[in-house]
Write a protein that binds this DNA or RNA. Structure first.
Lengths: 195, 195
DNA sequence: ACTTGATCTGAACAGCCGTTCAAATCTATC
DNA sequence: GATAGATTTGAACGGCTGTTCAGATCAAGT
């Protein structure tokens, strides 16, 4: 037996990434075997190596792709005129973007330690880049006089943790919609940083 | 060869738990083998089974022990008179307790999915019990008129995530002491919930 | 000094791990 | 219809996995 009917790299490649994302998110990188991923795709384990040099690259590509998408999506957002409006845009964007990709976010936070040092440094750099945009907004509002946070760096950590935390409890069929959650979190954010 | 000189269960038992805690925190439950833990303790893998029925129980005991300790420590704290003072006590307690046990906290958040369903339910119940004490404080302050949170349940999630997030960036030799961090986080908390 | 029970070793078990590769079979092009 | 290149299989590699257990050696009680 060998090449199978209807086999195309344009189909198998994405399906492998989807299966890896789903399985890594559910069981964790270390707990998932290449054979499990292959079984999920409906292929033998050896076939995976036409699409990734090794398991590590599979994880890295998922995380790198997610971070690139995050930064690009934020860059594509309009930039409101005032720091307060920019902060509101960030809060709503962060919640919306993260709730739309629960698996990728889960992996991005849980599997960092399974990255090789070089790969870790790259992902960490991208994350810092994203977080620094929030710090910039806070600093702008501080110098402009509309915010009164005691420490912009810590406020960044606090806000990112608070906003990302939504992913741990939000359920699609819950009592609140994404917009309602965003309203409440923007309210809390506003009170936290406002003068 | 067999029993070794100076071998005592009162020593080996704790050393196994310490090694497991350290290694699970560093590499993840699934990525750590029983032989690695044994090597760290200076013993053969078979000896571990005098102290734990299996690897799963080792993880569960660490998480269960941690949650018991957390709940007991909070119970031992004095209960101030007003909701505002109780909230301040909670914020400072949470940061202090968590920063003192980074590895246990790390495991408690990262390895939940590696628990058997039964074990998961137990840990999850204890966590809910802890979080509900915060919700209670928020509700008290709400009915008493000193707080003005839009939603106590969401405020609980937001605050817990924000406070626990300190563990991801805090470094012992950093620019801020635990008390200084607590001051700033209490300030942000206060502004977030105050009327 | 002798016995009893606690403690550990070292080997073994069956099974899974990531990865490689020649051979087989497909699709696409001419 | 022949040919070339893309794609997958299936077997194999050495090594690691959690767990069990008989036998060896220790510490402690008498």
């Amino acid at each position: 037996m060998a090449r199978t009917q209807g086999s195309h790299s344009a189909q198998t490649g994405p399906r492998i990434r989807e299966a890896a994302l789903r399985l890594f998110a559910k069981h964790g990188y270390a707990a998932v075997s290449m054979r499990q991923i292959a079984r999920d795709v409906g292929v033998q384990a050896g076939a995976l190596y036409n699409y990734t040099p090794d398991k590590q690259a599979l994880l890295f590509d998922l995380l790198k792709g997610h971070m690139d998408e995050l930064l690009a999506a934020w860059k594509a957002e309009p930039t409101p005129a005032t720091p307060t409006l920019r902060l509101e845009a960030f809060v709503r964007f962060h919640i919306r973007f993260h709730l739309a990709r629960p698996q990728a976010i889960f992996i991005s936070y849980m599997e960092l330690r399974n990255l090789d040092p070089d790969n870790f440094a790259i992902i960490e750099g991208l994350r810092k880049r994203y977080e620094s945009t929030l710090t910039g907004i806070l600093r702008d509002g501080l110098t402009e006089g509309s915010f009164a946070v005691p420490d912009p760096a810590l406020a960044t950590y606090a806000l990112i943790a608070m906003l990302t935390g939504v992913n741990t409890w939000y359920r699609d069929k819950g009592r609140l919609s994404v917009d309602e959650v965003s309203d409440i979190y923007w309210d809390m954010t506003c009170r936290m940083v406002a003068r």
